[in-house]
Each structure stands twice: as C-alpha cells, then as structure tokens.
Computed example of a mutant assay.
Amino acid sequence: MLIHPWDAPTDDAEWQDWLAAHDFGQLAVNGPAGAPPMVQPTHFAYDPVHREAITHLARPHPIWRALEERPTVLLSVVDDYVFIPGPWQAAEGAPPEHGVPTSFYAAVQLTCTAHIVDDPGAKAALLQRQTGHFQPEGGSAPVAAGRAPYGRQLSGVRGLRLEVREVHAKFKYAGKRSEAVQQRIAQRLTERNGPGDEAARGHQERRRAALSGTRP
C-alpha cells in the first residue's frame, strides 16, 4: 500500500483507536504455488498490549493447510470510504472541471505470523477473549473446554493468533490540499450526506486540526 507522508497516521494512537472500532477485515493467505492468495472475511479482536489479533474459523476450512505451509499473512481492514468528485478538489481559481476525482478511505494492514490454536483449553480461552470483545455486556455462557454449552463444539473450530510484525496504516483525506480546498470538500460532504460522508468528514477535520496543532 502506497502511503504518502500527508496520508500517514499522526501517531500510533490514531490507527489503534480506529482499528479498535473496526474489527471486521479480510485475512489474506498465500495459496499454493501458481494459485492466487486465499482471502477470508472475518471478525477479529485486536490486542494492542500483546500486538496480536485473534479469530477462529471452521476446522474444514481449506485455509489451514495454506497457513501451515506459509504462516506469514496479511490482515486488511478498509472502511470510512467515499468517492470525491473532481470539482470538489479543484485548486483555488481553477475551473471546477479541472479537479481530479479521488477516493477517501481509512486502511490498516497488519503483517502477521499465524499461530494455529488447537489445544482445547487454549482455544476456549481465545474464544472467550473474542466473546468479551464483541459482547462486553455479557449475555453468553462462559466458553470452557469439556463444559456445556460450547465444550462439545470446540472440536469444530480452530483458533488463530495473528502475531503482528508490521503495521501499515493510511488515512487518505485530502491531506495535501490547501485549507480552502479542504474546507470546500468538508462542506460538500455535509451537503451530500450520503453513506460514509459523515465519517469521512470527521477524519478530514480531525486530521486537519491535528496537523495544524489546533482543535476542530
């Protein structure tokens, strides 16, 4: 992923906070020689303390053999994306039709080493961590090996710990544009008010404030 300086995170907290609220991504795994990568959409829980993401998949999944052979994987998360029409980006004083259309989006890519979890106790603990992330309010029985209601179902899944080796994050929200053009884009996003526009405008204004050293 190409990351220009004006699209890079302002600090680690920016991408970590965003990732904490965006816990569904695509796990890309190297396929056999001559075959395309395998891509699996999945919910996951990211743990910044241990620098790992955790998830689980069904035991019959063909991804396991690929992981055993090549454990280096990529977990990719993209969201808060919108299309920006060309006239919105036209330079000050230039004809609107000379503006270049583009996409706004936030993206985090985690390069990881995959560790398969098959021990029943460790697998139950991993699933309990996931449940705690997605259901912090509770409401589900504890996940424990050999105990109802989930103990018998543990054999049907395998756990997966994704040990993070590298992080590439990008927040593409007109960071290289002038203040006037950025304000114009923010106003157009407000007026359009389509899917994703509010989140995109929030990113743009937050980053503009952070980079200028002021508050929005």
Score class of each variant (00 low, 15 high):
68 E>G: 14
88 W>I: 00
83 F>W: 04
52 E>Y: 05
141 A>Y: 12
49 V>W: 08
144 A>E: 14
108 V>Q: 13
42 T>H: 05
146 G>T: 13
111 T>F: 14
118 D>Q: 09
64 W>P: 11
21 A>R: 10
27 L>G: 01
186 A>L: 11
116 I>M: 07
41 P>W: 10
211 L>I: 04
143 V>P: 00
35 A>V: 07
206 R>M: 10
102 T>D: 06
155 S>W: 00
171 F>T: 05
36 P>V: 00
88 W>Q: 01
48 P>T: 14
73 V>P: 00
93 G>E: 06
211 L>R: 15
112 C>M: 10
1 M>I: 04
9 P>N: 02
34 G>R: 15
26 Q>R: 07
209 A>C: 04
135 Q>P: 05
62 P>F: 04
117 V>D: 07
153 Q>P: 03
50 H>N: 13
196 G>S: 11
149 P>M: 05
197 D>L: 02
199 A>S: 15
57 L>W: 12
186 A>S: 15
97 E>H: 14
142 P>A: 09
164 V>L: 03
163 E>F: 03
83 F>S: 06
82 V>S: 02
188 R>L: 08
113 T>S: 08
94 A>M: 12
151 G>H: 04
16 Q>G: 01
145 A>K: 01
185 I>A: 06
141 A>G: 09
94 A>H: 07
96 P>E: 13
130 Q>P: 00
161 R>T: 09
211 L>N: 10
187 Q>R: 15
171 F>Q: 06
33 A>H: 01
68 E>C: 05
105 Y>N: 07
72 T>C: 08
9 P>A: 02
63 I>N: 03
62 P>K: 07
20 A>L: 05
13 A>Y: 11
48 P>C: 11
